[in-house]
């Protein structure tokens, strides 16, 4: 092969490499992953609506008390006994567990549900595979009781 031909082949190879590089660069610059704008709204709405709805729910066989009334009783230690013989704290815990089993667990959504005045001693602590390092959407509702505030917190893990 003559020297001139070799040079031309070399040049062609360089041009091909530059073209491939450009194609890859353009591909990475323009092919963006679609943003999931809906997921943020859905998680935030889900956390807020879940707590709100739960607190307003009428406890079954418990003198038409709402869950928030039972939480107040639980925090104040008055322990209203419901129809099935459970105290307020146990009743709220079992109702929350029943609801979350039929919703979050069914949807394969990990969550952490806490009701507490003192974070170290929660009245209710329900959890399903929510790692501390996981990104989560949280919402907290406050229920005033005598001389304290009860926090109802739900973390939804992404």
């Amino acid at each position: 092969m003559k020297k001139g031909q070799m040079e031309i082949i070399g040049l062609a190879i360089v041009i091909i490499i530059i073209l491939i590089g450009l194609a890859i660069a353009v591909r990475f610059m323009t092919f963006k992953n679609p943003e999931n704008t809906r997921a943020g709204f859905v998680s935030a709405e889900l956390a807020s609506n879940t707590i709100n709805t739960f607190l307003e729910t009428t406890a079954e066989n418990c003198l038409k008390s709402k869950m928030k009334d039972l939480i107040q009783d639980c925090a104040e230690g008055t322990e209203r006994i419901c129809g099935n013989g459970q105290g307020a704290c146990a009743f709220v815990r079992s109702a929350a567990d029943e609801i979350f089993t039929k919703t979050f667990r069914k949807w394969k959504t990990n969550y952490k549900f806490l009701i507490y005045s003192d974070p170290n001693h929660p009245f209710v602590n329900l959890e399903s595979g929510c790692a501390a390092s996981q990104e989560k959407v949280s919402d907290t509702f406050f229920i005033p009781v005598t001389a304290a505030t009860v926090y109802v917190k739900l973390d939804i893990c992404k």
């Binding site: 709405e45 739960f54 307003e56 009428t58």
Partner: peptide
């Protein structure tokens, strides 16, 4: 196709009770 679940209160005016619905 997108599926959104919204927890919502179900008010029964006859019994004056609130259920938990989705």
């Amino acid at each position: 196709s997108f599926l959104t679940f919204v927890p919502i209160s179900l008010y029964d005016p006859a019994a004056d009770t609130y259920g938990y619905g989705v």
